[in-house]
């Protein structure tokens, strides 16, 4: 292995060295913001050391954008160029929401390992390991969004709302994704294995993203389905992102998205924390 024999052979711990480290100071505990950010830093370090985990935020969005643009473009909007203007904001939403799933899967893997025991035994604000992990994921969502938008621009997407519209819509999308992640965080604490987390997440995710206005205008759908589309928060999110990117500010819809974000955290946050506290 990598451990050199020199390290193994030397008596590693001398009494003097141990005495001096045990004489260390006892700093005062930092606040919740700092500890959450510190856990966020851990998530970034993990991206640095295990860059493979970015596959989902890079490949997924590219695949989706290309696939749906060229698959449906001609049939649904007459031309791929036309369809791209409608689809790209929607794909951005779908890609982001899909990526949030990974939060639950990675967290489940993480919690299975002993290191979470150490985190839970620290005198820090209790949700901070989870909040930090989600903050790290926000970085992943940003990368995914940047990839979709860049690819869209290359393919011919022209946002009428300009840079400001794009930035605002991505910001809102990140807020929503962060809040939605609490659902997966909760699931990751209920289900035993990363596989089951992935399975259940898929089951929730597919209807959530497809039964919405991401791909098509709901006008052609049967009435009952339109009703579902209408209450699906993803529909409102897609409407907002589309609106902002194309230069209109749908204030009411923005309110809807922010309200559902708050609701997601208000419901799944506390449940998650109770589960986390009572984790075996």
């Amino acid at each position: 292995m990598n451990a050199t024999s020199a390290e193994q052979a030397s008596a590693p711990v001398t009494e003097d060295a141990l005495r001096s480290v045990l004489a260390g100071e006892r700093p005062s505990s930092p606040g919740p913001v700092l500890t959450s950010l510190t856990f966020g830093w851990r998530a970034l370090l993990k991206i640095k050391h295990v860059p493979e985990q970015l596959v989902d935020v890079t490949m997924f969005p590219i695949m989706f954008t290309l696939m749906f643009t060229y698959l449906f473009g001609g049939a649904l909007a007459g031309s791929t160029q036309e369809y791209l203007q409608f689809l790209l904001p929607g794909i951005l939403v779908q890609a982001n929401v899909m990526i949030t799933m990974n939060t639950g899967i990675t967290l489940n893997t993480d919690i299975q390992k002993g290191v979470f025991d150490r985190f839970r035994s620290l005198p820090v604000w209790r949700p901070s390991p989870l909040v930090g992990a989600l903050l790290g994921d926000v970085m992943r969502y940003s990368i995914g969004s940047a990839i979709v938008i860049t690819l869209g621009l290359v393919l011919g997407f022209r946002p009428e709302g300009g840079a400001v519209g794009v930035v605002l819509s991505v910001a809102l999308l990140l807020v929503f994704s962060f809040c939605l992640s609490w659902l997966w965080t909760m699931l990751s604490l209920i289900l035993r294995t990363p596989n089951s987390v992935a399975g259940v997440s898929m089951m929730v995710m597919f209807p959530l993203t497809f039964v919405s206005n991401i791909f098509v205008d709901p006008k052609t759908m049967p009435g009952w389905m339109q009703a579902v589309v209408e209450v699906n928060p993803i529909t409102h999110l897609a409407t907002v992102v589309r609106g902002l990117m194309h230069g209109s500010v749908p204030a009411g819809e923005i309110g809807w998205v922010l309200a559902s974000s708050v609701l997601l955290v208000a419901v799944f946050g506390p449940i998650t924390m109770v589960l986390y506290r009572n984790k075996k």
Binding site: S29, R42, L45, K46, H49, V50, K113, G114, V115, D117, R118, S121, L122, P123
Partner: peptide
């Protein structure tokens, strides 16, 4: 928690770091 520390049986540090 402020006065004790725990060294668990398995992986009590982050292996990726």
């Amino acid at each position: 928690r402020t006065r004790v520390s725990l060294t668990g049986q398995f992986a009590s540090v982050d292996e990726d770091l």
